[in-house]
Simulated scan of single mutants.
Amino acid sequence: MTIPVSIITCPECGHSETETMPTDACQWFYDCKNCGTLLKPKKGDCCVYCSYGSVACPPIQEGNSC
């Protein structure tokens, strides 16, 4: 079962936000709603949810690649 929601945490200010992830694609950018920092995936990760989220993105959860 795929978990569609992740808590994404900004590495700059520590702000956390609950977001619904796209189910058919990876999200490469995310603007922190607190400090405005543009988050990008860490090297080796496919998306911002895999880097900064509480749950990996749906394609990864399903065993696929982005």
Rank of each mutant, 00 (worst) to 15 (best):
I3P: 00
C47T: 01
P11H: 14
I3K: 12
P41H: 04
E19N: 09
D45E: 13
Y30L: 14
Y52P: 08
Y49M: 11
C50I: 05
N64G: 02
Y49E: 01
M21F: 04
D31G: 12
H15M: 00
Y49W: 15
S16H: 06
V48S: 05
V55M: 03
C50T: 05
W28V: 12
M1G: 13
G63L: 08
G63V: 05
S16R: 12
L39P: 01
C10W: 06
D31P: 00
E19R: 15
Y30H: 14
K42Y: 01
K42Q: 11
S6C: 08
P59K: 12
K43T: 07
C57S: 13
D45N: 14
D24Q: 14
A56V: 14
E17A: 10
C26S: 11
S54D: 09
D24Y: 10
T9A: 14
E12N: 14
I3G: 00
Y30W: 15
K33H: 13
N64V: 04
H15T: 02
K33C: 04
G14A: 13
L38H: 03
C13Y: 07
P59M: 08
N34E: 11
T37H: 03
P59A: 10
S65I: 12
C47V: 00
S51G: 10
T9P: 11
C46R: 01
S51V: 08
K42H: 10
K42W: 03
G53A: 09
E62H: 06
I8V: 15
E12H: 04
W28H: 07
A56Q: 14
G63P: 06
I60L: 15
C35E: 04
P22F: 09
C66T: 04
T18W: 07
K43A: 13
I8W: 07
S51H: 09
A56N: 15
L39G: 05
Y52R: 09
L39E: 03
H15C: 08
D24K: 15
D31R: 14
I7L: 13
T23N: 06
G36M: 05
K43N: 05
P58H: 05
E17K: 14
K42L: 10
G53I: 03
Y30G: 01
D24M: 14
S65G: 12
G53D: 06
Y49Q: 06
T2Y: 04
I7Q: 13
G53M: 08
C46H: 09
D45R: 08
K40T: 12
A25H: 13
Y52M: 06
T2W: 00
S51Q: 08
D24T: 15
N34Y: 05
P41W: 07
C57P: 02
K40F: 04
C47N: 03
A25F: 11
V5S: 11
L39V: 01
K40E: 15
I3C: 00
G63N: 07
L38Q: 09
G36S: 05
M21D: 04
C13N: 02
A56Y: 10
P4R: 09
T23A: 13
C32R: 05
I8G: 10
A56G: 04
N64P: 00
W28D: 05
C57A: 08
Y49H: 09
V55R: 10
V55G: 02
G36Q: 04
S16G: 13
N34V: 00
V55W: 00
I60G: 03
C10Y: 09
S6T: 15
T20Y: 02
C32N: 02
P11W: 10
